[in-house]
Design a protein around this nucleic acid. Structure first.
Lengths: 112, 112
DNA sequence: TCTTTATTTAACCATTTGGTTATTTAGTCA
DNA sequence: TGACTAAATAACCAAATGGTTAAATAAAGA
């Protein structure tokens, strides 16, 4: 899978609040499908589908323990996303730099 | 619009390569719809829709100059996305910390 | 073996998405 | 005014998404 396609899958997986909730839960450690489903207001098959989306996007991995399928967070994929957004960091920081300059010159004027 | 809904819109807007290409172009400065459409392999109305998606997600803003509607990047929204992913940074960094520890202890063994 | 638990799959449905072509709107310029 | 340019809107379509309920699969436990 090429980089662009990976980003498509990751961003689109992150676009649903239930899926972000699942990731937030997994940040605290592995969990089974039932545990992940418990706080979510939807049927188990719906959760199962969300989990598959996350897995296909490389955001989680699944194990096998008896009849349980414990999920674990795959944070490296989130790092890929972070790296993408970081391309633009200098732009949103420039806004604050500009603000700093304005505040700085105001302070300068006041001092002089 | 609440924080969760904003993230839904932002992530889902970022999930399409054409839209990421538009943002990449806008990082170099404002551009009209026609200019943004030029490198994209799709009709102008299709681009128009993508632009609307980006605008609704707060990722771009549009101006008005005669019959042109110049678009500009709204990097603050990307910052919101970056802040969300940053929640998980300690997790993907932990992987490298663990690696460092392994490498560190190997080096330690070698030295002793 | 029979039952229970965990999870997935199947079948279905409504809505959204991403594209198209044709048309319309708005502004410029000769 | 009339022709041209930029962009949006309308109408349409196929495919994907996100949910449902019912049924199937797989492993554990009595």
């Amino acid at each position: 899978m090429n980089e662009d396609t990976k980003l498509d899958a990751a961003f689109s997986a992150l676009a649903h609040p239930a899926r972000r909730a699942i990731l937030a839960r997994l940040a605290q450690g592995a969990a089974t499908v039932n545990v992940l489903a418990e706080p979510l207001d939807m049927s188990l098959p719906a959760v199962s589908k969300h989990i598959r989306v996350l897995e296909n996007a490389g955001l989680i991995s699944r194990g096998k323990d008896a009849q349980f399928r414990p999920c674990t967070l795959n944070a490296q994929t989130l790092e890929t996303v972070a790296n993408w957004t970081d391309q633009y960091r200098y732009i949103w920081e420039a806004r604050f730099d500009a603000m700093d300059n304005i505040l700085g010159s105001m302070k300068g004027n006041k001092d002089e």
